[in-house]
């Protein structure tokens, strides 16, 4: 029982991270039909940004958090403007390859700035682990869970209640239709890019204290986030959340009850099975775009 609860905690913590990353993938996809393979690198930028601003320059945590996310979103803005917008007659796969190029570029850049070694930062609050039925829960895990849920609910209201959110959804449903009804769809795409990369950086910021931050940490996290997004159904907010938590918990249980060597394999087998049974993910509705 104690062990099971501990696995659950581990799964929930990782799952919340995957979920935040997956939401970033999903929201960009619904606005642009693009999968950003550099998304994991924005997670890395978030984590390393916090290392510099909070750990290095000792800014107050909220300021460091906000500045890091804003900084990463600015990089996302520049990326969209210089590398995505400029492509004429883009084929989806061409844009994907550009994002692959961007991921290598960002990783290389981060290596120049932060060096090849890993860095660490202390947890947001210095409380001791909380004892729940013998299992230990880190306060940072609670931070992560709360922030993930707040982000998801916030986005939900953004889509439902604000004009910009509705306009963004309209663009996602039909770009030309939205354009005809006076929505500046290009600006919506840009906004989606900025928000998506900002979300990636947020994931990086909240994960930084529980793990080690290095220039190459983003690839695996990005991949897991992509899996979570597809598992839940790309383009769906709740799908991304569900996919993230499912993936995290399955991984932790796989370590506990199957084999730690095969934990990734177990997660991917589950993913394949779900896709075979429901080819559009758990919550996916529309067919994803073709190449």
């Amino acid at each position: 029982m104690e062990a099971f609860v501990q696995y659950l905690f581990s799964g929930l913590t990782n799952g919340a991270i995957y979920a935040v990353i997956a939401i970033g993938f999903s929201m960009l996809y619904s606005a642009t039909e693009l999968i950003n393979f550099a998304h994991g690198e924005f997670v890395m930028l978030g984590a390393l940004g916090l290392v510099t601003l909070w750990g290095g320059l000792h800014l107050p945590l909220p300021a460091a958090f906000a500045l890091t996310v804003a900084g990463a979103a600015l990089v996302g803005f520049l990326f969209e403007r210089t590398a995505i917008r400029t492509v004429k007659k883009p084929h989806p796969i061409v844009l994907v390859i550009i994002t692959v190029g961007a991921s290598i570029f960002l990783r290389g850049g981060a290596m120049m700035i932060w060096g090849k070694d890993a860095h660490s930062v202390p947890p947001f609050s210095g409380h001791p682990p909380i004892d729940v039925a013998g299992a230990k829960l880190l306060p940072q895990s609670i931070w992560i869970l709360v922030i993930a849920v707040v982000l998801a609910v916030g986005l939900f209201y953004f889509y439902r209640r604000t004009l910009t959110g509705k306009a963004m959804q309209a663009t996602a449903i039909n770009k030309w239709g939205a354009w005809l009804s006076g929505i500046p769809s290009e600006r919506m795409v840009l906004l989606a890019f900025v928000m998506s990369t900002g979300l990636g950086a947020t994931a990086g910021v909240i994960i930084a204290p529980i793990t080690m931050c290095s220039y190459d940490m983003g690839t695996m996290l990005g991949l897991k986030g992509f899996c979570a997004a597809m598992l839940g159904g790309i383009g769906s907010l709740w799908g991304a959340l569900a996919g993230g938590f499912t993936l995290g918990i399955v991984e932790a249980l796989a370590v506990g009850y199957v084999s730690s060597a095969a934990k990734d394999a177990v997660a991917f087998i589950l993913l394949l099975l779900i896709l075979y049974i429901k080819p559009s993910g758990l919550f996916g509705t529309a067919d994803a775009s073709r190449f």
């Binding site: 501990q6 230990k136 996290l221 506990g256």
Partner: peptide, 9 residues
Amino acid sequence: TDMTAQLTK
């Protein structure tokens, strides 16, 4: 990012 599951085992 997290090895608590392995250590618990």
